[in-house]
Design a protein around this nucleic acid. Structure first.
Lengths: 206, 206
DNA sequence: AGTTTAGTTACGCTA
DNA sequence: TAGCGTAGCTAAACT
């Protein structure tokens, strides 16, 4: 769609859209990717200082003294270039995604396939991603007497907010609540217990 | 701390730490910043494919056939370089932050200074960023009879999660709950009403 | 060190 | 397309 390049320049950047952002003057690195996305990186931090999603249009000439403008539905980035330090094309830039392990999904699957190892209740039905009025329940077990077991799974350390999210589901469908994951904070476990919910420790296999 | 550079290379990347991530082989852009942070960018999307925060250590030589390793408390990124397409230093890279407008803080201030325009209750005290056990309350008004008015402010469209955050505060300090912002989702307004909380519409001035 | 939140969150999935 | 929730979220503020 657009030829990708990196530009290390002196100048200033203005963003207008969901917010209003001013940057510089200073030295920044501009990245233009295959998908038309744009990012302006400063000398610290992982996220860019300014950015714009895929299919941003580009106007202007990349040269000292020029202004280039990127646009995308209601958003604008204007870049005033004072000086160019280097300019390089990135041709054949790979669009591969990272193959990720240790996701929340893996923990959900582990609990699904090994339910008896983690829960006392014998359920005739175990479902994942059960849709409710206020969002999907990660794991829902149903006992023969109709009792529901509502499980909210977190891949990272569970917080008080996660406990309240569980509470939201339990109040919506009824039943017994469980928060599951590899780790939970002190405040969170206290909150969980005081509201009558259960903590289920589950680790990643690899 | 470390000299910043960009490296466009063919090769593969492995991350091990909070998760396990495999990338490539393919062409990627490696950024090493002033603060020692590292990011590996692919040809699409704004965020990097792999990354590591500030003060990452670096081992190895940047040359074809070599492996470079970045490390930081319990995390490792290994990069196998097959071929180098370009290598550039970014000297004097600016560390300026963006000067931002239309932040949540601005909405909080607007409500603070124009309280009677948005709330019926007459309060003798209005405070911002009131610390509680479970985090800070954006805006807290106190009536003469002691009734508290708890306000959670959002700069973007409010969600059910935001209602839960409000609920956490109201249940902590007691009183009447308000969610405030420019916009709110359908499920969120339903959740808000069903729990007896209020919606306050407030817009950015600029 | 632990906890919580803001963010132009970005991005993917589902209805 | 819009809404909703995850993320190796990141990074900052505060206890």
């Amino acid at each position: 769609m657009s030829r990708s390049f990196s530009l290390y320049f002196s100048g200033s950047v203005k963003y207008d859209g969901r917010a209003l952002g001013l940057l510089g003057p200073g030295r920044f690195l501009l990245l233009r990717k295959n998908d038309g996305s744009v990012s302006v990186h400063g000398g610290t931090l992982i996220p860019p200082r300014n950015y714009m999603g895929a299919k941003a249009s580009m106007e202007g000439i990349i040269a000292a003294g020029q202004t280039i403008v990127f646009e995308r539905k209601g958003e604008t980035i204007s870049i005033v270039i004072d000086e160019i330090h280097f300019f390089e094309y990135m041709d054949d830039w790979s669009e591969d995604e990272v193959c990720l392990r240790r996701t929340e999904r893996e923990l959900v699957n582990k609990l699904f396939w090994n339910w008896p190892d983690y829960f006392d209740a014998t359920c005739y039905s175990i479902e994942t991603e059960v849709q409710t009025e206020f969002g999907p329940i990660d794991l829902l077990g149903t006992e023969f007497d109709g009792t529901l077991h509502v499980v909210e799974v977190k891949r990272r350390k569970a917080t008080v907010t996660d406990c309240i999210q569980l509470r939201k589901y339990v109040e919506t469908v009824g039943g017994i609540g469980y928060l599951a994951g590899p780790e939970i904070g002190d405040k969170a476990i206290k909150y969980l217990k005081s509201h009558g919910y259960n903590w289920v420790q589950v680790e990643f296999d690899i």
